[in-house]
Design a protein around this nucleic acid. Structure first.
Length: 272
DNA sequence: CTCTTAACCTGGACGC
DNA sequence: TGCGTCCAGGTTAAGA
């Protein structure tokens, strides 16, 4: 489910409720997520103050003086801040009670997400092989151009590889390639430097717009307050197979193919 | 190295 | 109503 805009929306929604608060208690209802929930959640976290809430790629970090809670939402995860008296829902796996009287809950039906622990002054192994953040200066046309030389994989697959750039998933890869006018099936190594410049700008624009809309809610994404995101209304190609292209004057219909096992949408006329 | 594929898991939509 | 099939916003392990 969540790509960078949804994770960033979650981070922004959590921060005012978590920063400066102390953890009173932790309740684990189900430990078998993608990885087992880190034992430190129960053994170390209670009593600690959350000093910051950060995002790296699609991961969230809750920093304390003794280490950080490292969260990934997988395909179906979401975090809510609510009254601990609110009834527990099916697939609510973790509850973290705060000294504000509110509680943080991790809900994840498919359990592709994880909740791990990062020791102080260290970088968790899962974060070590990640590419640049899309809003960093190091993510630019030269970088993508050089990295892609000799690559035969589809440019969409290359863009979704978290070692190329982080945060771009299936929805935003489709939208960014449409905005850049690049055929998602094209080999990454056959895309020019000039077109990678367009792609960089498109990724930033699409992600930025999506963040400002609170992310995309297709089925079940909710921010920590329980509200959906509104970027779904702005999607140009994702999920629009058979419908007409939104480009003024274009008379083509949106096509769908499978790339890297993922449904992929594009306009055969606007994207080359 | 790079690339492709299967697998992890649940729920909702759809066809019969 | 029920049952089978397919699909879904992510990631990794294994094999070619």
């Amino acid at each position: 489910m969540p790509e960078l805009p949804e994770v960033e929306t979650t981070r922004a929604g959590l921060a005012p409720h978590l920063i400066g608060r102390c953890v009173r208690a932790v309740r684990l209802h189900r430990a078998d997520l993608r990885f087992p929930i880190a034992p430190e959640l129960a053994s170390v976290l209670p009593g600690l103050m959350i000093a910051d809430v950060r995002r790296r790629a699609k991961y969230l970090l809750l920093d304390t003086a003794q280490g950080s809670v490292l969260l990934h939402l997988g395909m179906s995860g979401s975090l809510r801040v609510l009254n601990p008296a609110a009834p527990l829902k099916r697939h609510d796996h973790i509850e973290i009670d705060l000294d504000s009287g509110l509680s943080l809950r991790l809900h994840d039906p498919r359990r592709f997400g994880c909740c791990l622990w990062q020791a102080p002054q260290s970088v968790h192994p899962l974060l070590q092989k990640l590419g640049p953040e899309p809003f960093d200066l190091s993510f630019n046309a030269d970088y993508l151009y050089r990295l892609s030389r000799g690559r035969s994989a589809a440019v969409k697959t290359f863009l979704m590889d978290q070692q190329s750039v982080v945060g771009v998933g299936n929805i935003y890869a489709a939208e960014a390639l449409f905005a850049a006018g690049i055929d998602p099936r094209r080999a990454a190594g056959a895309v020019s430097r000039a077109r990678y410049a367009k792609l960089c700008a498109a990724v930033r624009m699409i992600l930025g717009d999506a963040i400002s809309q609170g992310g995309t809610t297709l089925r079940d994404f909710l921010n920590p307050s329980g509200s959906p995101g509104y970027f779904a209304q702005r999607l140009s190609v994702y999920g629009r197979e058979g419908k007409s292209c939104v480009t003024p004057g274009c008379r083509s219909t949106i096509a769908q193919v499978t790339l890297g096992q993922r449904a992929s949408f594009f306009c055969p006329s606007c994207q080359r």
